[in-house]
Design a protein around this nucleic acid. Structure first.
Lengths: 357, 357
DNA sequence: CTGAAAGCGCTTACAG
DNA sequence: CTGAAAGCGCTTACAG
């Protein structure tokens, strides 16, 4: 149904258009357009007139029509691969906030396909229709939060930054992510300083990030002349649980483990609890991600903090740079992580203050 | 920049348009349009021809242009008020899945404004620009997941269903949410069956849901001739912590508490731990929401399960009904919750199997 | 600084 | 069943 005059007279209101504003202000459509896109180029009194008319009518330019005409929408798309993982939500919000500060606008959307057996941290597949939709919307740029398992061909032709994920080797895209080598160094340093020498790693499966951390662990251990014990596992709690059981049943079991992420570390804690192994006295545990859970009184998990807000912030800035100069080559930023020490490695952790308000 | 022929000859490819397909198939634009919107109305051979041309060119109709022409986009908008809360992600995905099953398409987006002091469960404000953007996109309908603090005027003119939130009294919108009275009955029943008579409630602040649960608690207790002890608190861990401390320092302290949600219940557990109060022996704790956290070994929180996937599913169906018959009056569905009993109320809980894969 | 005109990619009556 | 035409709401050269 076209938006006829009759329609706007009826109860079913549609939003006023540029035409309505032009009529009310007594100017042409194009002048109204100009007043909204490049106000300086319109004479002060006319501008005032137009803005008043728009105000009175409650007019705001229609994104959709504007996008079609310009062949580019006035926003940066933020594609969150997995909504269930709280760190992705945190990154996405940090991205949006930083874009805001720079006068850009971020639209968050999610493309996760729910598998029946989906776990909080599972890296699900992506819905190609969401990506197509996003392409139709023609965002100025895209920020992909999290690891996309599929080929990146989907994002071709639009400036893209990966937040918290590594792009494929010969990509044209930028990325901002934690420096895993540095994170592993912090984790192993900490454990070694507590006197641990027999240290295991749980992880290595489930993608590039996992494999990279396993490699970093081996490097870190070998550089100290220590034996690297690796128990392959993915990102889920269940896999952490199983891997920990395997590790705990070895004859020379490790006195400490580093886990590929916090979720699997939670599984390790559960396995230790069930096996009557006291944490941290008999088993020290370190995770990666520093999810909110890690800070809970009863979990108190020492974890490598990837600085998610910083990752989000820098991803936004990377996109702005890409937008500024078209020829900008893709960049890779590695963020230096932090180690947050808690009860899973230090028995007598400093008494925590009650959570602040 | 218009999408000229020269442009499509250059490296910077844009997607093929209906015009390209028409040219290749040797038919008019409108016939191509028809072939995509109402294939039956096109002769078999021509249809085949058109589809082949489209296939060869990699053509797919542009959502944006279609939306502008039709004054309605081919999808249902799913607005997630708060991305940080895992239950909202779960609902949103269930909505999308059910829409899918019915041939509709759901686009998830988030509108949370990050406040500096934002907590995992804080009900943030909503970004009006996201809503406007969504309106411009003209979704067929809207599903709002979570409580929107602002006025609902934003959603006027578009069929809307609230998932997991109550609409304002005289609204024209539908809603699907947990039956809080029933949930409270389950919680109190359980505690009473364990022999508790002095039971507290932590919550009541922060919105309609919170206040409603407080009222339900009082009703439930009074109907049994028990005294209802209410300690006002919001949804955050910090507020749960503080409220629990207040409650525990009373002369006749309760032997059990029901919390307005799981996050605040976590705060209660922390307060009990810090005060040396043993859960569940000296204090039994029940939460609402059954977030994934509640199932963790070390938390093991008894919780009222709102059946989020079911809420999502029914919200999708409610929207489909609204779309089917325009005159359909708004409906309110109350979902019967479940009580998941864990270690925070039952000391010797059944030995849990290791998490399944 | 202003206004008429063409166009973004699609859909929808309307006449053949 | 098919094709030319007008339109969705906006932007962008282009001529005044």
């Amino acid at each position: 149904m076209a938006n006829t005059g009759a329609d706007s007279a009826s109860g079913q209101r549609s939003r006023p258009t540029i035409r309505d504003v032009a009529a009310r202000a007594g100017v042409s459509k194009s002048l109204v357009s100009l007043a909204f896109t490049d106000p300086q180029k319109v004479g002060p009194q006319r501008r005032e007139l137009i803005l008043e008319a728009a105000q009175a009518l409650g007019y705001e330019p229609n994104f959709l029509a504007r996008s079609l005409a310009r062949d580019s929408a006035p926003f940066v798309g933020i594609l969150v691969v997995n909504l269930r993982n709280p760190i992705f939500a945190e990154i996405a919000e940090a991205v949006r906030q930083e874009l805001d500060l720079n006068g850009e606008y971020g639209l968050i959307t999610s493309a996760a396909i729910t598998d029946s057996d989906d776990l909080p941290n599972s890296y699900g597949r992506i819905d190609p229709r969401v990506v197509r939709m996003l392409q139709d919307l023609r965002p100025k740029a895209l920020i992909v939060v999290g690891t996309v398992p599929e080929e990146e061909a989907m994002f071709r032709g639009i400036p893209t930054v990966y937040a918290s994920a590594a792009p494929r080797p010969n990509t044209e895209h930028s990325s901002v992510r934690m420096d895993d080598a540095k994170g592993m160094e912090l984790a192993v340093d900490h454990l070694v300083s507590l006197g641990h020498t027999r240290i295991g790693f749980i992880g290595g499966r489930g993608g590039a990030v996992s494999a990279g951390r396993a490699r970093a662990f081996i490097t870190e251990m070998e550089s100290r002349g220590l034996e690297a014990v690796v128990e392959p596992a993915g990102f889920s709690e269940a896999e952490g649980y199983r891997a920990a059981n395997d590790l705990l049943s070895r004859d020379r079991r490790p006195s400490a483990v580093v886990c590929v992420n916090d979720i699997s570390a939670i599984g390790v804690l559960a396995a230790a609890d069930d096996a009557g192994v006291v944490v941290p006295d008999e088993l020290a545990v370190v995770g990666f991600d520093n999810i909110p859970l890690a800070d809970l009184n009863r979990i108190s998990l020492t974890s490598v903090d990837p600085q998610n807000r910083e990752i989000g912030r820098l991803s936004a800035l990377a996109v702005l740079e890409l937008l500024g100069a078209q020829g900008t080559p893709p960049s890779e930023s590695l963020i230096t992580p932090d180690l947050v020490i808690r009860g899973s490695t230090l028995a007598h952790r400093p008494q925590e203050a009650p959570p602040s308000d």
